[in-house]
Structures are given as structure tokens and as C-alpha cells.
């Protein structure tokens, strides 16, 4: 066991989190190896934030065990937190202070000597492309710059493990790519990361492995590409057509089908031979003069996996409260 644990940044066993009678996280077990980027993917309310909060010792564990960086988080929270970097879902910067002051004040909480803090702060400003904004008051920064500072601030103690709770939610695409770029660089430098997200593209771009969560339980786990191959194949053919014809189309497509899914009037057919499927169906549809709203062939993504596993879209439960 000990040889195993050294290579693992996080070991969660039968982890459960209850709020009253509501189970936000239900008997979940997973491991995160050092150096990897591990994703928690799921819609709002799936339990991602609850898991992240237990890992950095904010939220007490209801039952199960959780070892973080080889220590029990319930017993050694301060020691573990000294080696973590946390980027919370909401920015919690000091709005009245400048960018540089934010880093310096945060360094204080890790008891970094002033000169070390100063040196690291300047490195971080450079890395995050914030040097020119060093003396700007945080309150006046844009959302994207605040986010970059939040991420930079989490690096002040040179963390072994970075916990990122929806790091790009609410950012515009440009700002999002800026953050992804930095995270990729950190990953290349060997920082272990735990990332929660409901953006599939984010999970695909950054995560080596991920678990798909829904309502506090693990639906599936593995590498993003492997999950796609396993559940839905390479292509998705979306067809807008009245539900009465779905059965007919399914039987026509069956030689090529890997899986299928209905959402309202849309039928989604998954296949590794997308082109053949589309051509053959197209011929049959034309021959029988079926009325088709639209037809689109596209590569599959994690959303399809999620849809396949739950019958729901990732954006489908926005109104549920986050645990």
C-alpha cells in the first residue's frame, strides 16, 4: 500500500457527503496520480464542488476516507493546505488591494518570508501576463484578469496539487483560452491538478483522466478519448425528424450503429463509420420521401458520452443548486 500511496496525490475511498438527508456525494472512490490532470465532469449539482471542498479541507467528510498528498485531510488540514493551491469557483480576491498586494498578502498566510514572496509574486505576474497590472486595484480589473490573478495567487506556495473548481466558468472564450494555456504549462511542469468542470471542451483539452458524475455518483471513468470510443464511437449523426419515424431510421442504420439517443424530435445516431451511415440513410430517406428537418454529421464529444450515460444534457440541470 505504501508504495502505491507515494504515487497518488489523492486517494478517496467510499467518500460520502450529506447535507441533512440530501446526499451530495455518494460512496465515491477514486485516485489521482501525481503529475496527472484529473477531471470531475458533471452538470451543476453533480457533487463536483462538494468533492473539491472536501479535498482542500473546507467541507467536513460525512463518511469514508480521503488522503491528500499522503495525509489524512481530517487530521492534518493545515499541513495539507500548505501544499495545495485552490482556485475556487467564485473569485475571492481582496478587491481593495492591488494585484501585487493580493499576492503578497496571500503569501503571508503561507508564512513565506517577504523576499521569497516578492520574488515569487514577480514570477507569477510574469507567468500570468499581469506584470503591467501589478499596481492596479483588483476592483477595477476585468473578469478575465481577476481569474488569472486568482489562479496566479494559488501558485504562490508552489503547490504540489492544484484544485481548480470550474476555473473558467463565466469567462469569454479568449480569457478561457488564456487560462487553459497557463494550466497546460503548469501540467507540463509536473503540477498535479484536480479540475471540476461542466465544459466538455475543457475536460478534453486538459484532463488525462476523468470521472463522469451525476447526482453524487460516478457514472463512468477513464481517458476522455477512450470514453468516447467506448460509448459513442467517432461520429454523431443528428437528424431532426418526427418521433414516429425514429424506429424506421434506427432499423435502417442498425448495421453501422454503435448507440443512439433521442432528444425531443432529434435523433442522434452514433457510429464509427459516420460517412457510410449518413450516405446509406440519405439514400433510403430520399427513396421513401421521408420529411427530414435537418441532418448533420459531426465528430462525437464528451457531451455525447454524458448524454448516452444519463439521457440528460450537461447543461440540462442548470437550475439545480450546487452542493
Amino acid at each position: 500500500m505504501s508504495e502505491l500511496t507515494v504515487d497518488q496525490a489523492i486517494i478517496a475511498q467510499d467518500l460520502t457527503k450529506k447535507f441533512g438527508t440530501f446526499s451530495a456525494v455518494n460512496n465515491i472512490s477514486f485516485m489521482v496520480s501525481r503529475g496527472e490532470c484529473f477531471g470531475l465532469l458533471g452538470p451543476n449539482g453533480a457533487g463536483k464542488t462538494s468533492i473539491a471542498r472536501m479535498i482542500f479541507g473546507f467541507s467536513p467528510i460525512t463518511s469514508g476516507t480521503l488522503r491528500v498528498l499522503d495525509q489524512d485531510i481530517r487530521i492534518s488540514a493545515r499541513q495539507v493546505k500548505a501544499r495545495l493551491g485552490v482556485v475556487a469557483q467564485e473569485d475571492n480576491l481582496d478587491p481593495e488591494l492591488t494585484v501585487l498586494e493580493n499576492l503578497m498578502v496571500y503569501a503571508n498566510y503561507f508564512r513565506l518570508p517577504r523576499n521569497v514572496a516578492r520574488e515569487r509574486a514577480e514570477e507569477i505576474l510574469q507567468f500570468m501576463d499581469l506584470t503591467e497590472k501589478a499596481d492596479a486595484v483588483v476592483d477595477e480589473l476585468s473578469g478575465g484578469l481577476k481569474r488569472r490573478l486568482t489562479l496566479g495567487r494559488a501558485l504562490i506556495n508552489q503547490p504540489e496539487l492544484l484544485i481548480l473548481d470550474e476555473p473558467t466558468t463565466g469567462l469569454d472564450p479568449y480569457a478561457r483560452h488564456m487560462v487553459w494555456h497557463r494550466l497546460r504549462q503548469l501540467k507540463e511542469n509536473g503540477t498535479t491538478m484536480l479540475l471540476t468542470t461542466h465544459y466538455l471542451e475543457e475536460a478534453r483539452q486538459l484532463c488525462d483522466r476523468l470521472i463522469v458524475l451525476n447526482r453524487g455518483t460516478i457514472l463512468e471513468q477513464g481517458k476522455p478519448a477512450a470514453l468516447i470510443t467506448k460509448h459513442v464511437g467517432a461520429f454523431a449523426l443528428e437528424i431532426g425528424v418526427e418521433p414516429g419515424l425514429h424506429g424506421q431510421l434506427l432499423s435502417w442504420g442498425s448495421p453501422w450503429l454503435k448507440a443512439s439517443q433521442r432528444i425531443g424530435n432529434d435523433l442522434i445516431l452514433y457510429s464509427d463509420q459516420g460517412q457510410e451511415l449518413a450516405e446509406n440513410l440519405g439514400l433510403k430517406i430520399a427513396k421513401d420521401h421521408l420529411r427530414i428537418g435537418y441532418q448533420r454529421l459531426r465528430p462525437t464529444n464528451l457531451e455525447d458520452v454524458f448524454l448516452k450515460l444519463t439521457g440528460e444534457t450537461l447543461q440540462g440541470s442548470e437550475d439545480e443548486t450546487e452542493g
Binding site: F56, A88, N92, Y106, F110
Partner: peptide, 14 residues
């Protein structure tokens, strides 16, 4: 509002 407390307790501060 500013969640300053939350930011602090993500460090060794309790």
C-alpha cells in the same frame, strides 16, 4: 460578499 474568509481558509489559515 467578497468571500475573503473562503480565500483565507484555502491556505493553512483555519
Amino acid at each position: 460578499r467578497e468571500k475573503i474568509f473562503h480565500g483565507m481558509v484555502a491556505t493553512p489559515v483555519s
